[in-house]
Design a binder for these strands. Sequence first.
RNA 1: GGGGAGAUUCCCGAGUGGUCAAAGGGGGCAGACUGUAAAUCUGUUGGCUAAGCCUUCGAAGGUUCAAAUCCUUCUCUCCCCA
Length: 421
Amino acid sequence: MRGVPRRSVFDTLKQRGFVSQCSNEEGLRKLLDTEKVTFYIGFDPTAESLHVGHLQQLMFMAHLQRAGHRPIALVGGGTTRIGDPTGRTESRKILPVETIAANAELFRGQIARFLDFTEGRALMLDNAEWLAPLNYIEFLRDIGKHFSVNRMLSFETYKMRLETGLSFIEFNYQILQSYDYLVLYRTHGCRLQMGGDDQWGNIVAGMDLIRRVEGVEAFALTSPLVTRSDGKKMGKTEQGALFLDPAMTGPYEFYQYWVNVPDADVEQFLFRFTFLPVPEIRDLCAVKDQRINDAKRRLAMEITTLVHGEPAARGAAEASRAAFSASDEGTAAGPGALSGVPSIEVPREELVKGIGVVDLFVRSTLCATKSDARRLVSQGGASVGRKNVTDIETVVTESDAENGVILLRAGKKRYFRIIVT
RNA sequence: GGGGAGAUUCCCGAGUGGUCAAAGGGGGCAGACUGUAAAUCUGUUGGCUAAGCCUUCGAAGGUUCAAAUCCUUCUCUCCCCA
């Protein structure tokens, strides 16, 4: 094991806010300090991209890997066919197998960026590999017999669902996840499963299974679910989740999300979503008032770099600065500065004739419908260039362009560029 | 298998023949205040060629001048009994 840490990784994790529940803290700490441990986290490919919730788990893994341990990123191509009922009041829509396979492929591509997979330092597996070919009768005899329905019903997840309804397929989810853990123990010596707090029940069930079947102690470790101090769902934008795929959530939008985080959350996010050293984070967050914005910009820059790479992050930062200073101080920024701001191209001829503001805002995607655009304009939330526009009959023409670009603004912070071609 | 309850707009949830594009709350958006923060207050929140018209109250039919509301069948969910 390379680079035996001077201090326990466990303390690092704790300090950075990754530790919530642990099955045996002393035992796990000792194990992590003395052995190279193989551990895993599962990711169910229920969408086309990972989102920031997954990012926290990837950071969780990355810290352990940096301490010399071996992560297994488990893509749940098999479990997703069942659907995890955890934390849901209604059953998940069952996805077609082909969709799951396609999503799994996309997940693998994204996960690969966050861990070091060279020379077997990390593994990427898909549980469809062993779950899909399972034989029902055999499985029941070998694995099912270790599960007590009485005990399962006592789990919070199931209790909750017993009120609204729970189908048998979902009831089996926990058993399959437990089986995953057992398989990974057998095939790769995996002895630690991590996840978000919501996964506690599932993880513990797997740990128990390993103890019963193999007589070995395995470990469970969960991290707190990230919440925002304002009660908004973490990583949710107006558009939906904050995805890691740049085609779904652009780097500029991604950067903006972090710059706009509530003051009270900056520190916890720096701890969990960046690798900045603890003292540096404390310094950054020691300030109050608008000075805390520096910490937010740092946070946004770090995470965006991590997820989209440095050039994209710099572009997003530059564009943000240009957009937000342009509105106060006039043309502070050069022509290329805004290039990170989302845009569409519109032919010059169209603008010679002129386009109604309402239509232009709809085309820009700043507004979903014309009614939406009308409301925005009449409520005084729309700007073209540096002019606030309040008349829905306003026609935008070429003369509104500056350096071949018309900058639209909806509300105080949503910008969009119309590029004249 | 028998009996009961239910499915309403993004979510929760009122609404039992016209006064319903549908109360109220949440969320969203916008304005004021600010620091691209929070809290607070205000406005707004189906679509459109905006007077007016069109689509929406699980699905399909039917009754009626008129249906979210009444009838029939269907789908799904929950509860109780077996």
